[in-house]
Nucleic acid binder design. Sequence first.
DNA 1: ACGTCTGCACGTCAGACAAG
DNA 2: CTTGTCTGACGTGCAGACGT
Length: 266
Amino acid sequence: MEGIVEENGAVDPLAPSPDPQSPIASVQSVIQPNQQSVIQTAANIQPMLGKGNVILVSKPNSVIQTTQGSLSGLQTLQVKVVETASDDSFSEEESPKKRRDLLTRRPSYRKILNDLGGGEIAETKVEQISSEADSELSSHSIPYHTVLPGTAIQISGGKGAQGIHTLTMTNSTAGGAIVQYAQGQEFFVPVVAQGGNIGSGNGEDQDRKREMRLLKNREAARECRRKKKEYIKCLENRVAVLENQNKALIDELKSLKELYCQQKTE
DNA sequence: ACGTCTGCACGTCAGACAAG
DNA sequence: CTTGTCTGACGTGCAGACGT
């Protein structure tokens, strides 16, 4: 099956792209409406830019750019100019909410990173942290319901200095405590009450819920910041690529002008 | 040494949003 | 509607650079 590379007509470079599994790969347009398109592709869709593939662009005279810096393969590409829906093409029936979503709502960093192919790494990293915490606990035979009375405990793994882990209990509440181990990794350990129930009263349950929420939000905030940084790096890279491209185009224009003047005077 | 400034990372809250 | 997630905004603490 032939691959189709379709220009994403969105003006916003942050606009979400379609399902990556889709045969239609998305490339993002980073120019203003009614201007010629600059199509920038990620390296991971390079294989698609081969013979027999079709690039759909919504504007004539578009420039196609790859991160590889080579356009040689594009000679085999077929570029089709297609009519695409403009921003004004929303039907009256389109709900205001959907319209607003499509036009103004900035996609989340998670979405953006997924589009950029970095989402999976982020997901696995988070899961890895949790599972590492799980395995650390189980490997040291600390059941989740263990009461941790001290503020810090050390557990030797039996393999010398490398096996020593420090668990620091903080934010201790009636409902439990947040335990930090290794490098900033932490988890919540509910305290077993006398009767064996987790928590005891309504207020304590509220406290525990609040602690859990704060902990999760803390981690979410960290993750959000990490993604934001990654995203900003991406944008900076794109700026660099576009600046280079702009420079190259200016040079090309210059030489073509010179050639034209030369031929004119002859 | 000391204060001040600046940048960074963090925790928390609030609000928007999505999923069930 | 409820609950959980994401992210902007705000305030705080810390470290390094800089001027005095």
